[in-house]
């Protein structure tokens, strides 16, 4: 089973003059972490949207957990996404008025699959994940998310992406709002947790200082022929 396998993906934004993505092949094994780097605006986020099934992709081009993303439609795609993919964004990852723990548990409310895999006690799992991500203080876990620092918010987002052991985590520049020390610590925690859970990690960034912490790194410009 491949958490992610891309073959001959061509994507063009509706109305765009030329293709945004032209990717020959890209695949990830379970537990593998991939660092994908490239300058802003080269299509990295579009690739993540395509994998997450937010944009319409041709059939057969993208498989997540051996399922063709292009063949799933509408609400089923939203459910498919939460079942198999955890996502971490650059900033503003959390519902501001929910507590850290409640934010972590969100995928379990929308996905039975994730809930089942989160164990008998999802809340306990959420707390364990938070404490492994250095958020063990109970007062932090019950605080509304908007009272947490940016670094803390990103770690809560990581815990949310990890809960219920999805096959794949897509991280879209999650460290861009963090300082140098926090960046390294965050990536360290994230890669370690992913490896433990057997979750593949696709980490997109323009900051190559993080490159060494991943199993593999790829220059997006080499991968995407349309960008050349």
């Amino acid at each position: 089973m491949h958490p992610l396998r891309i073959e001959r993906l061509v994507y063009r934004w509706p109305g765009a003059a030329r293709n945004t993505l032209e990717i020959g092949a890209l695949s990830l094994a379970s537990g593998e972490s991939l660092f994908l780097f490239g300058p802003s605006g080269c299509g990295k986020s579009t690739l993540l949207s395509a994998i997450a099934g937010v944009v319409e992709v041709p059939k057969g081009a993208i498989r997540v957990a051996d399922q063709d993303v292009g063949a799933v439609h509408g609400g089923a795609r939203d459910r498919f996404r939460v079942d198999h993919i955890g996502m971490i964004f650059q900033v503003f990852n959390l519902i501001p008025w929910l507590s850290a723990t409640e934010n972590v548990l969100l995928p379990c409310t929308y996905s039975r699959h994730r809930r089942v895999r989160a164990g008998d006690n999802p809340e306990g799992t959420a707390r364990r994940l938070l404490s492994e991500l250095d958020l063990s203080d109970p007062s932090l876990a019950s605080k509304p998310a908007n009272e947490l620092s940016v670094g803390q918010q990103q770690r809560v987002a990581a815990a949310r992406a990890l809960i219920g052991k999805p096959d794949l985590i897509l991280a879209d520049e999650p460290t861009s709002a963090l300082d140098e020390a926090a960046k390294a610590a965050f990536v360290d925690l994230l890669t370690r947790e992913c490896a433990e859970a057997g979750t593949a990690l696709l980490f997109v960034s323009h900051d190559r200082s993080l490159e060494r912490q991943f199993d593999r790194s790829v220059d997006f410009r080499d991968l995407n022929r349309s960008a050349a």
Partner: peptide
């Protein structure tokens, strides 16, 4: 932003 987050964790537009 809130709605986008909800969608990323599996909430459908209908939800």
């Amino acid at each position: 932003r809130e709605f986008a987050i909800l969608r990323s964790v599996g909430a459908t537009p209908t939800r």
